[in-house]
Computed example of a mutant assay.
Amino acid sequence: MKRFALTLALFCGALSPLTLAQTATPASPTTPPAAGERTIEAITATSQKGYSIRVPAGWTPFKNVPGADVAFVSKPLGTIRPTVTVVVNDVPADLKVTLADVRDINVKNLPSLSKESLKIVGEKTIKLSGRDAILWTLVGNGEGGQVRWTQVFTVKNNRIFTATLVTPVGAPAELLESGRAILTSLTLK
């Protein structure tokens, strides 16, 4: 029963931005400043859900992404708009969820999250706010071409924090570095 309830909780939200972020239309983000106007160098988004995340210049807040607590987009690269989303899922306290549980269920649910096959091409354990977190990279076909998802997730107090970066395969190194810096800036409160 524990695994079923956790699967349901994760399936209903933790990874859904994998597919939502890549298909989000560029009309929804706030309009970036015109040339010559003052721009924000960087912002730190702080959520009442217990985290903050730092976003450098060049990323624009993206409104109303289903299932995401916050989302940011960068300039389009071809037909794909690079996107960062943060999803927070609460799991009932009696389930006592672990990072290993979350990882195993996320891997099991990958085939159902995309019509195209997704492949994990990298995975490692890192530290976020002194807690173990899993950072992985997946590739697959998305709307508009080959897509790379870089994702970090961790657990604190039965709350699952998932930050996802979506970029086209072959994106410039600077964009990947900027996006990864956003993910690893995730700070739990």
Rank of each mutant, 00 (worst) to 15 (best):
residue 134 I to Q: 10
residue 126 I to L: 14
residue 124 K to F: 00
residue 122 G to Q: 09
residue 134 I to W: 04
residue 144 G to R: 12
residue 123 E to S: 13
residue 137 T to V: 14
residue 128 L to I: 14
residue 140 G to H: 04
residue 139 V to W: 00
residue 140 G to A: 02
residue 139 V to E: 12
residue 145 G to Y: 01
residue 128 L to S: 07
residue 115 K to R: 08
residue 140 G to Q: 06
residue 145 G to L: 05
residue 126 I to V: 15
residue 120 I to Q: 05
residue 121 V to G: 05
residue 122 G to D: 14
residue 133 A to V: 11
residue 144 G to N: 07
residue 128 L to Y: 05
residue 145 G to M: 02
residue 133 A to G: 11
residue 123 E to H: 05
residue 124 K to Y: 00
residue 142 G to C: 06
residue 117 S to T: 13
residue 127 K to G: 12
residue 145 G to W: 02
residue 120 I to H: 04
residue 115 K to L: 13
residue 126 I to A: 07
residue 140 G to Y: 03
residue 136 W to S: 12
residue 123 E to W: 04
residue 115 K to G: 15
residue 119 K to G: 01
residue 127 K to L: 14
residue 129 S to F: 05
residue 143 E to G: 15
residue 125 T to C: 02
residue 145 G to F: 01
residue 116 E to P: 01
residue 130 G to E: 05
residue 125 T to A: 07
residue 125 T to S: 11
residue 118 L to N: 12
residue 121 V to K: 09
residue 127 K to Y: 03
residue 134 I to F: 07
residue 129 S to A: 09
residue 141 N to P: 05
residue 145 G to K: 05
residue 125 T to R: 12
residue 140 G to T: 03
residue 115 K to C: 01
residue 141 N to L: 09
residue 142 G to K: 03
residue 115 K to Q: 12
residue 130 G to C: 10
residue 116 E to A: 15
residue 117 S to F: 02
residue 136 W to H: 13
residue 135 L to H: 13
residue 130 G to S: 04
residue 122 G to R: 13
residue 137 T to H: 06
residue 120 I to K: 03
residue 119 K to L: 08
residue 129 S to M: 05
residue 142 G to P: 14
residue 135 L to G: 01
residue 122 G to T: 00
residue 129 S to P: 10
residue 134 I to H: 09
residue 135 L to C: 03
residue 136 W to F: 11
residue 144 G to C: 10
residue 126 I to D: 03
residue 118 L to E: 09
residue 141 N to R: 13
residue 143 E to K: 15
residue 118 L to G: 11
residue 126 I to E: 11
residue 116 E to C: 05
residue 131 R to N: 14
residue 142 G to R: 06
residue 137 T to D: 13
residue 117 S to R: 15
residue 146 Q to G: 08
residue 127 K to I: 04
residue 138 L to T: 10
residue 140 G to K: 06
residue 132 D to L: 06
residue 131 R to I: 00
residue 118 L to T: 06
residue 132 D to Y: 01
residue 126 I to K: 06
residue 128 L to D: 07
residue 125 T to H: 00
residue 141 N to T: 09
residue 115 K to H: 04
residue 123 E to F: 04
residue 121 V to E: 07
residue 130 G to L: 07
residue 117 S to C: 02
residue 119 K to N: 08
residue 115 K to E: 05
residue 143 E to S: 14
residue 142 G to L: 02
residue 137 T to S: 15
residue 122 G to P: 02
residue 143 E to T: 13
residue 136 W to E: 12
residue 116 E to D: 10
residue 141 N to Y: 00
residue 143 E to A: 14
residue 117 S to A: 15
residue 134 I to T: 12
residue 133 A to W: 07
residue 115 K to V: 03
residue 143 E to F: 13
residue 120 I to N: 02
residue 140 G to I: 02
residue 123 E to D: 10
residue 120 I to M: 07
residue 120 I to C: 04
residue 119 K to W: 00
residue 127 K to N: 12
residue 119 K to E: 11
residue 139 V to K: 15
residue 128 L to K: 07
residue 144 G to L: 06
residue 131 R to V: 01
residue 139 V to R: 13
residue 137 T to Q: 14
residue 146 Q to V: 03
residue 143 E to C: 10
residue 132 D to A: 12
residue 136 W to R: 15
residue 124 K to S: 11
residue 122 G to W: 00
residue 118 L to D: 03
residue 142 G to D: 08
residue 132 D to V: 02
residue 135 L to W: 01
residue 139 V to Y: 01
residue 119 K to M: 05
residue 129 S to I: 00
residue 115 K to S: 13
residue 117 S to G: 12
residue 122 G to L: 01
residue 142 G to W: 01
residue 118 L to I: 00
residue 128 L to E: 04
residue 133 A to M: 10
